[in-house]
Design a protein around this nucleic acid. Structure first.
Lengths: 225, 225
DNA sequence: CTTGACACAGAACAGGCGTTCGAGTATTAT
DNA sequence: ATAATACTCGAACGCCTGTTCTGTGTCAAG
């Protein structure tokens, strides 16, 4: 019968193989064998799988370790282990102090209490740094475009540069908040992320404790109650 | 001769095996075989390697896929390949139509046009699904707690259940927006995520095209300009 | 001393696996 | 039409690999 011949690039079959390798790797934590690929992609001969694998290797989509079992892998930018594990230190909530990790805390946290972020999503400057995560509780951070349940990832720091989004503890107001930080003539301007809301000003005399600089916000959208 | 008996925990040999697996994995991009481990660790019998591997598995240091070649991997730190690659299909912007991927688009995107998300961050239900990502352009989604530059990850779907956050195309208003979806008696209620903002109502007669359901929002906080 | 747990060696087995070869069919170009 | 190219199949070969079984020596407790 008629099967439209693809002039160039990846055909449907190439694509299916690529997808299968990716999903198999995710599920089994190791690459599939040639025969497993054939089974899933309805290819009855191992030589045909090998045939396509050769093409995918030539086109740079996969890498193969010849003669080695399951020696096939995708050649996308981030192969393996390219994630960053960030400790979840607690919650950030208006009216509560911000828990900042001590040096001893780093490295001693369980996977359940940590957040994994792909390197590719990290702002370049922050890679490999000592970051920590906080879960936002309550809706008091809405003016920072941060909602209840969001996860904010912070870099611990005491001083901020203009434009940084920081987590601050305003002891005068007994309040925790996330704002963009600007140093002006004789005061600090804390600008909400939401442009429709007005900034608050803090005299340089007043206490303003910067706990960390926000580098990322993650929100899992489950359901609205 | 005298070989000091280790009372408990990891012995020198266990450690050497662990180290070898790690370094081999780094160098070859795939785990070593039992015989390769034995060769490096000066163990002349595969059964002895198997003997230690069993112990390391019991003590939780490694995981094994029995019967599968090179089916051994470390369990600490960075789990390998535990990420999800989501294609970045374009931008979502008020007044513009939403680009929704066709079946052919999946899998044919370059790393630069994709977003990697750790599995552990994914809502359980969405794992392995055909997701796609959009970059938010403009500040028109602020009432959805989404800012300019944010990345939203969507699951393509035409119908939504109450409480889902959806991307909709309101052809009457020639507008794209992100809202929480609620079906009411004779109309649809589109509830902004920001509780301080009022919902908009759409009669069931009016056209309302649901393009996808939002499962995650990611924001890289760089700097405020 | 005996016993048993432990560490190790060697060999053999069975199945997994990548590779290769021969042959056949469909599609496209000449 | 004819030839070249692309694709598919089935089978066989042989190495790779995890598993298992038997046996040996060490060491500490009874």
């Amino acid at each position: 019968m008629m099967m439209v011949r693809k002039s160039k690039g990846l055909g449907e079959r190439h694509q299916k193989i690529l997808d299968f390798i990716a999903s198999y790797q995710r599920e089994h934590k190791h690459p599939p064998s040639i025969r497993e690929i054939g089974e899933y992609c309805d290819i009855s001969s191992t030589s045909v799988v090998n045939y396509y694998l050769d093409q995918l290797e030539k086109s740079g989509n996969i890498e193969r370790d010849r003669k080695i079992s399951r020696g096939v892998r995708l050649t996308n930018g981030a192969p393996i282990g390219d994630m960053f594990r960030v400790p979840m230190m607690g919650v950030i909530q208006a009216g509560e102090p911000i828990p900042v990790p001590s040096n001893a805390d780093f490295g001693s946290f369980t996977p359940e209490d940590s957040v994994e972020v792909a390197m590719s999503l990290m702002p370049a400057k922050e890679k490999g740094k000592e970051l920590f995560a906080l879960k936002v509780q309550g809706e008091s951070m809405i003016d920072a475009m941060v909602n209840d349940g969001d996860i904010v990832i912070l870099k611990p720091t005491q001083d901020a540069r203009n434009g940084d989004m920081v987590a601050v503890w305003l002891s005068d107001r007994n309040e925790t908040t996330l704002k963009f930080f600007f140093k002006e003539k004789d005061k600090y301007r804390l600008q909400p992320a939401n442009p429709t809301m007005k900034p608050i000003y803090i005299d340089k005399g007043e206490s303003l404790e910067i706990k960390g600089k926000v580098v990322m916000v993650i929100r899992k959208v489950e359901r609205y109650n």
